[in-house]
Design a protein around this nucleic acid. Structure first.
Length: 273
DNA sequence: GCCACTGTTAGCAT
DNA sequence: CATGCTAACAGTGG
């Protein structure tokens, strides 16, 4: 659920709340959430100050003084919530970091438990596999580089957009929205698309992701920002979750099919190979 | 109650 | 190497 716009929303929200605070305590409730072999590794963060928050694709990096960084992936249902320590934590809360002088605390919540947190040295953060293997940030990618990355690919358009090694941060919802915006069929083979169509695709990547960020992400079910607020983009989705509804451009009925194992929504009239 | 489905991706098979 | 499917888990809806 959290894709690039949602993760960006969380990072911007938490940046305002966390930067400058000092860690008071780290409480690990569900140990498998922390990937370090040494489950007490995160105790090293006690007494360190938050220097900044970064996003890479769908990953969140929290930098602390003392050269320490937390790498976080929310996978499908993870949440990072900053709120009053007095509020009760439910059974899906797996890690809690409290701060001083704030009376607030940061909680990692994850219903499906796919998400993870790992502590690393800041100097090694960008070299850790999950970060290192990511493709470029789509919003910082110019058209020639974008075309370069797609050249020679054999897969279908949709699976390329979802492939984090090609570009980082696009997930199922925005892949469908980007393809609708570019008027391209999710099943199209990239190798058979001309430069005009690929340029429309690149342009749609920018338009859709930027618009979704400005609306603070999409809440289908679980997404919340760093303070527990829902996103606002769900009402603006054009095809995702709109099977059977009229296409906003041509009125044909939106179809839902399966493409490379993923549920895929598109307009059969507007979106062509 | 049972079964199918869900926004991610590592790991395995092809 | 590149690409495609499945499982990891919990909850929801039919």
């Amino acid at each position: 659920m959290p894709e690039l716009p949602e993760v960006e929303t969380i990072v911007r929200c938490l940046r305002r709340r966390l930067v400058g605070l000092e860690v008071r305590a780290v409480r690990l409730i569900f140990p498998p959430t922390v990937q370090n072999r040494d489950k007490s590794y995160l105790q090293r963060f006690v007494g360190k100050r938050v220097l900044g928050l970064r996003r890479r694709g769908k990953m969140i990096l929290l930098d602390f003084s003392g050269g320490l960084t937390l790498i976080i992936h929310l996978k499908m249902t993870g949440q990072l919530l900053f709120g009053p320590a007095a509020a009760p934590a439910d059974k899906h809360t797996h890690l809690v970091i409290s701060f001083r002088p704030s009376d607030g605390e940061l909680r990692f919540r994850d219903i499906r438990k796919f998400g993870f947190i790992r502590g690393v040295g800041t100097d090694r953060a960008d070299r850790t596999r999950e970060v290192r293997d990511l493709g470029p940030e789509p919003l910082a990618l110019d058209l020639p580089s974008f075309l370069d990355r797609l050249r020679g690919r054999r897969g279908r358009l949709k699976s390329l957009l979802l492939n984090q090694k090609i570009i980082a941060g696009v997930g199922n919802i925005y892949a469908d929205e980007i393809l609708f915006g570019s008027g391209l069929d999710p099943r199209a083979k990239v190798s058979r698309l001309g430069p005009r169509r690929l340029e429309r695709l690149w342009s749609s990547v920018h338009t859709v992701l930027n618009e979704a960020i400005s609306f603070k992400g999409t809440t289908v079910r679980d997404f919340r920002d760093g303070e527990g607020f829902e996103g606002l983009f769900q009402n603006r989705l054009r095809v995702y979750g709109r099977e059977g509804e009229p296409c906003p451009r041509c009125g044909a009925l939106i179809k839902r099919i399966r493409v490379s194992g993923r549920s895929t929504h598109f307009c059969p009239r507007c979106q062509r190979r």
